[in-house]
């Protein structure tokens, strides 16, 4: 089942085309990946899908409904979870509280209830979910530690955990492996597989081609803002256009 779909996405900055007529689809339980050399438009495409950037033309469908004109927070509440290449954790909150925000914020509880000190009746499952995600990501040892004190690699996991606590239908990850050690990357691969097996649709933008070819079910290759190739990892890896534009240079 298609959870997130971008159709004919085009975005220009000034006169420069960043992304032109690119279409992607992410399915429940599957991992899709976007690859491409620097400046290919991966991050712009990502921003258009998450709602961080308004697009010039094209449509974004989330669970079949048009969310093109909706903001990032609205898409998040409709089941789109994401992480950032430039980390954006809540540094002064503990790791567990970072995850709690992820669980609470998607509900849009009336703010005045908090002002009057009224409890949120729907909060009962939050603590359990936070504990499960902490265990999944191996963050139990730092659960009460202030987030700003952690290393980059673990902060990427905190961000992933925050997104997972929102119970996303689709998870978008922007370079999740950058700054991670080899062991941490192996852990991430297992987590991504487990998340997808849970029925979540996953889309990642990644420089680490080995990770992509290893974990992705479907790969989109971008170059200069256009779709160069798309298919299974093997098909894309074998595509001569892709090899000349990207793969050979990276592997060399």
């Amino acid at each position: 089942m298609t959870v997130l779909e971008g159709i004919g996405i085009t975005k220009r900055f000034g006169g420069r085309v960043a992304v032109e007529d690119v279409s992607v689809a992410v399915h429940a339980g599957r991992v899709a990946a976007v690859i491409g050399p620097n400046g290919a438009g991966k991050t712009t495409l990502f921003s258009c899908l998450t709602g961080a950037t308004a697009l010039d033309s094209g449509t974004v469908l989330l669970d079949g409904s048009d969310v093109t004109s909706r903001g990032a927070d609205d898409r998040a509440r409709r089941g789109l979870g994401r992480t950032f290449q430039r980390l954006s954790v809540f540094g002064s909150l503990s790791v567990a509280d970072n995850l709690l925000v992820g669980a609470e914020a998607t509900r849009r509880t009336p703010l005045w209830r908090g002002l009057l000190g009224l409890p949120d009746r729907r909060a009962s499952g939050d603590a359990g979910r936070v504990d499960r995600v902490l265990a999944l990501l191996g963050l139990e040892d730092v659960r009460d530690q202030e987030a700003r004190t952690l290393s980059t690699g673990r902060l990427r996991l905190v961000e992933l955990g925050r997104a997972l606590c929102g119970e996303p239908r689709v998870l978008l990850l922007d370079e999740p492996a950058s700054g991670l050690s080899d062991a941490e990357t192996d852990g991430l691969r297992a987590v991504l597989r487990a998340v997808a097996d849970d029925g979540v649709a996953v889309l990642l933008v990644e420089h680490d081609v080995r990770l992509v070819l290893d974990v992705a079910d479907h790969v989109y290759a971008l170059a200069q803002g256009r779709m160069l190739s798309s298919g299974t990892p093997d098909e894309v890896a074998a595509d001569p256009a892709v090899r000349s534009a990207y793969l050979d240079r990276t592997r060399a």
Binding site: A52, A72, F90, L93, A105, E159
Partner: peptide, 14 residues
């Protein structure tokens, strides 16, 4: 606190 610490992060959380 979340909105103060990181607006993009807060928005992405909903």
């Amino acid at each position: 606190l979340a909105a103060r610490d990181s607006e993009p992060g807060a928005r992405a959380s909903g």
